[in-house]
């Protein structure tokens, strides 16, 4: 049944000048679907890792301790002002190579993991900026009230500052996650088999670049739409009734 659906699709697209014949070839079809799956995995792994790192960096930046804030600020500035591709090359071509040499084969970090690490760290820095702005937007008088109620510093951070900062920073965080999804495409630069890479493999044989790019654009559009919808749902759930009137 799938065969006839796919044939129908190829026939439908041909009058438009679009050649989707690759879907009829089992090998290429499987490769493309695998690419879709790898991209999904990259997104699913990078999103939580970036959020965790973002919270940690934000907590470090607002801790007020110089031995934490200075190196973290340097890291933030470095990550924000250099291209992700170059960061990925430095991580994979340099660090990975060094690790492999030291461990002499048996390097546990796969290229997939390097992509997740670099992309998540890059976006974590933007998350941290948004969260830091959110933390600093919590009115000082609210914190004073919490202190007068005998909350400890840690409890104030966890129960008052972070929940409010999260609500303030949520739109920016969702924007960052949409960017993160798009950024996973650079995985193709180090031959991680995401959808972009598999498409390059296919179009270098069949020369149907436009057709594949359209599919990729649709797929990323779908992924970013899912993230935006999830973000809006979360915004509604965390809404503070009557706030800001």
């Amino acid at each position: 049944m799938t065969e006839s659906l796919l044939e129908g699709w190829v026939a439908f697209a041909r009058p438009f000048g679009l050649n989707y014949a690759f879907v009829l070839d089992a090998g290429e079809r499987v490769a493309f679907v695998r690419g879709l799956w790898v991209t999904l995995q990259l997104c699913a792994a990078s999103i939580p890792v970036s959020l965790v790192f973002g919270v940690l960096i934000a907590a470090g930046l607002t801790s007020g301790r110089a031995w934490l804030t200075r190196p973290l600020t340097a890291l933030v500035e470095l990550t924000r002002n250099t291209p992700t591709l170059v960061q990925l090359y430095c991580a994979f071509l340099v660090l990975n190579m060094l690790i492999s040499q030291k461990l002499e084969g048996g390097n546990p970090i796969t290229p997939f993991m390097w992509v997740v690490l670099v992309v998540a760290l890059h976006k974590a820095v933007f998350h941290a900026e948004a969260l830091r702005a959110g933390i600093e937007a919590v009115p000082g008088v609210t914190l004073e009230a919490a202190r007068s109620l005998a909350f400890s510093r840690g409890e104030i951070l966890w129960r008052v500052q972070l929940p409010l900062a999260l609500r303030f920073a949520l739109p920016a965080l969702v924007n960052n996650l949409v960017d993160l999804v798009k950024m996973t495409a650079i995985a193709s630069a180090i031959a991680v088999g995401d959808v972009t890479y598999e498409s390059i493999m296919i179009w270098s044989q069949r020369d149907n670049v436009l057709e594949l790019l359209l599919l990729i654009l649709l797929y990323f559009g779908l992924l970013t739409w899912v993230v935006s919808v999830a973000g809006r749902w979360l915004e509604n759930r965390l809404r503070m009734p009557g706030y800001g009137q």
Binding site: A185, S188, L210, L217, W225
Partner: peptide, 12 residues
């Protein structure tokens, strides 16, 4: 154009 990865647009 905001939901498309820049890399894909460059390939395009």
């Amino acid at each position: 154009f905001r939901n498309a990865p820049i890399l894909v647009l460059v390939y395009f």
